[in-house]
Amino acid sequence: MKDPYQVLGVSRSATDEEIKKAYRELAKKYHPDKYADNPLADVASEKMKEINEAYRMVTEERKRGGASRSSSYGSYNDSYSSGYSSASSGSASYGGRSRYEEIRVMINSGNFGAAETALTSIPSDERNAEWYYLMGVVYYQKGFLSDAYNYFQTACRMDPDNAEYQSMYRRIQQQRTGNQGGYNSQGSAPACDCCDICTCLLCTDCLCNSCR
């Protein structure tokens, strides 16, 4: 068993506040939502469990230590299940419905090769939003990120009301903006160069003329 303080990355003399802060940061880092559909989701959830356990141990130890503790910060619980709920709207035909469910089972068990072959065997005129979504998931796992993005985009366009597709698509867009790594080119204030200043002055001058 690892030292819980080490897991949280704090020293033994850290205050409760510091520990809470460290815990929150780690929990954000390894949050299951971030790793949804990632092939490493299970590793991340293991890590999360370890952090939760360490935090619980540290707080309990400190409580027993007698000092006043009011921190009952609820730990993130592991209600996260990596399984796909197939509670999506019944827009698919009956035959297609069970087919996609089978594919979801394949994806859940990590059998992506089989899922991909099953998906590609579906003729193109029977492909609906769910097909594009599942194909996106398979490509995302494989690391074909650009194709995955296109598939998710198509899935969202075909079925804009589906929350599952939307959340995935939003997550990927977040990644593309560079907020989670990489370079965010849009994060800058609007430019104000010489030309802008000049134009501004000219406009003001025009207004002055009209006022006179």
């Binding site: 880092k29 390894y30 971030k34 790793y35 990632n38 490493l40 590793v43 991340a44 890590k47 690391g143 990120l145 650009s146 993005y149 990927i172 990644q175 593309r176 903006t177 560079g178 989670q180 790594g181 990489g182 370079y183 965010n184 080119s185």
Partner: peptide
Amino acid sequence: TAVFCNETLNMTASQLIMAYEL
């Protein structure tokens, strides 16, 4: 095009960071 390239790279970088953090 520059923005598109950058977005594609961002997506890869964020996946990379997710793995790196583990």
